[in-house]
């Protein structure tokens, strides 16, 4: 890494930290921007370094999001009752409940996606080239359709997430708000979403691919 690159990364990091303080009206957009950075890097891992052009990374985005949302809510409330009220009744989450739920949810989302990726990988890695791209796109759309049929997680109406418990007037809270923006104010529904640890999944998956490919490589 050259000096210029380090400076560049430093500038990006600082802009990420200072940006929401300087432009508080655009916090939502900036949070989405960082999520998109993450999604783009997942594409870099699958399409660029792994050589599998996947149009279905969004599957894991959605699955991770649902897993984390369900974990976060169901740690303290009955998930079926919570979703049945369609967000009309807002159960109160204390700070402790909110953050422990969020941490567990993010963790479970990452782990769940890894497990799902292992299972799905057994099916879709049989495909090559454009068929892989179309197959994974199909998986993503099917996942959305199926998520819409499960009433426990809200069906077609989705899950409304609990509100972020703190005020957002102070810079520190602002930063936290920036970090949690995605999980906090987004209304989760099968077709639109926010991020979870799909990156973790993809890194794990690429590691697995290397392990899987090893005997093959030696044969060559």
């Amino acid at each position: 890494m050259t000096k210029n690159q380090i400076l560049l990364y430093l500038a990006i990091a600082i802009s990420g930290v200072v940006g929401p303080i300087l432009f508080p009206n655009y916090i939502q957009q900036m949070a989405v921007l960082w999520i998109m950075v993450l999604m783009a890097s997942t594409w870099d891992i699958t399409g660029g370094q792994m050589g599998y052009n996947s149009l279905g990374n969004i599957t894991f985005f959605g699955v991770g999001m649902y897993i984390s949302a369900v974990i976060q809510v169901s740690m303290f409330y009955d998930i079926a009752l919570y979703t049945a009220s369609y967000g009309a009744i807002k159960p109160v989450f204390t700070d402790e409940q909110y953050f422990s739920g969020l941490a567990m949810g993010i963790l479970a989302g990452g782990v769940g996606c890894v497990v799902l990726a292992r299972l799905l990988g057994a099916v879709v890695f049989g495909l090559r080239g454009p068929y892989f791209a179309i197959g994974t796109l199909g998986v993503a759309i099917a996942a959305g359709q199926i998520a819409g049929t499960i009433d426990t997680i809200g069906g077609g109406a989705g899950i409304s997430m609990p509100f972020f418990p703190w005020d957002i007037h102070y810079p520190v809270d602002l930063l936290l708000h920036h970090l949690f923006c995605a999980c906090d104010s987004c209304h989760i529904s099968p077709s639109a979403g926010c991020f979870q640890l799909s990156l973790v999944w993809l890194q794990m998956q690429s590691v697995m691919m290397k392990i899987k490919l090893k005997p093959w490589v030696f044969q060559l």
Binding site: V123, L127, G135, G138, V139, A142, Q145, I146, T149
Partner: peptide, 18 residues
């Protein structure tokens, strides 16, 4: 159920590809 119509098309695609 009606929601599975689209999903079934996708599963058929996957099945065909496999």
């Amino acid at each position: 159920g009606a929601e599975w119509q689209v999903a079934s098309a996708v599963f058929m695609l996957l099945g065909v590809l496999m």
